[in-house]
Design a protein around this nucleic acid. Sequence first.
DNA 1: ATGTATGCAAACCATTTGCAATGAC
DNA 2: GTCATTGCAAATGGTTTGCATACAT
Lengths: 161, 161
Amino acid sequence: MCSKKDDNIQEIVKQKFTEYLTAMRYRKTPERYAILNLIYTDPRHFDMETLYEAMTKSNFRVSRATLYNTMQLLVDCNLVIKHQFGKNLSVYERAYNNDLHHHLICTNCHKIQEYKGYFLTGAIQRERMKRFKPTHYNLYIYGLCNICARELKKQQNLNKK
Amino acid sequence: MCSKKDDNIQEIVKQKFTEYLTAMRYRKTPERYAILNLIYTDPRHFDMETLYEAMTKSNFRVSRATLYNTMQLLVDCNLVIKHQFGKNLSVYERAYNNDLHHHLICTNCHKIQEYKGYFLTGAIQRERMKRFKPTHYNLYIYGLCNICARELKKQQNLNKK
DNA sequence: ATGTATGCAAACCATTTGCAATGAC
DNA sequence: GTCATTGCAAATGGTTTGCATACAT
């Protein structure tokens, strides 16, 4: 499942993490690298529970406390993006070498789709802000997915009768 | 503090809320209108605790359960936007007639600034998605505010020595 | 050796839920 | 009168914290 290119990414992010830990004088523990490694093996969005179970199944079990601690570090050094799409549940995804995409969130069924709008991406990246050094951004577009839009239209028609 | 224009907005959102409640066959309780009214009196971002205290101080005390219930309705009918900037605390703001703005979030001190990028706003609104009917969107730009950027640069220079 | 990081379990706290009482329809 | 909505208090559940132990430096 891991191509040569993916292996390279594993190495690159490991190195970036090392640089960060060194710069901040944090310790380079095997737990931290094991977590980073697992995250960059699976490309999907994930939440804490999923990650915790995946770590447990792998040969490297870590406590929830360590997971939260490490995720904070990874977010701080821009290797992981943390989303909160409502529901008080954090959803994470890789930040490095992740194809740029936005998120379409259905306000009715709460399903999340990824959306690649290259024109939009360019526009955002070209934007220059005073007094702020942007590193990354999240664009959440709320609305109705085609299924819910159809469903609600049907309902409204019934109400009119 | 409320200009004539603001009074108009109060009326308009009240009417929009009424339409929604009617369409959904929900009841038009005084609690719900009192909450909407307070939200459209104060233009700032706010969280539940702030709103709860503000309601308590006003002549209309409501329970937390009712607040949460009503906020959900207001979000559903696009009169209120719910943000989650991390920290497991929802932050709300008016949606109707609110000047379009994005949010700059400092990943170091977590301070939030508003940012108006008209070019960007236009680009997002012109975007057309297949199989999705967008109603509104949030653009969160993460990075370093000028204060933190300076601070961290100073720190890095010290580490190099 | 020193003190940071881990694991565990308890604490925290925003939000949700269950249920009796209220009041919109 | 009926049943959705409210208020209250207890429950929920993701996240954080305190502390003893382990281990990176």
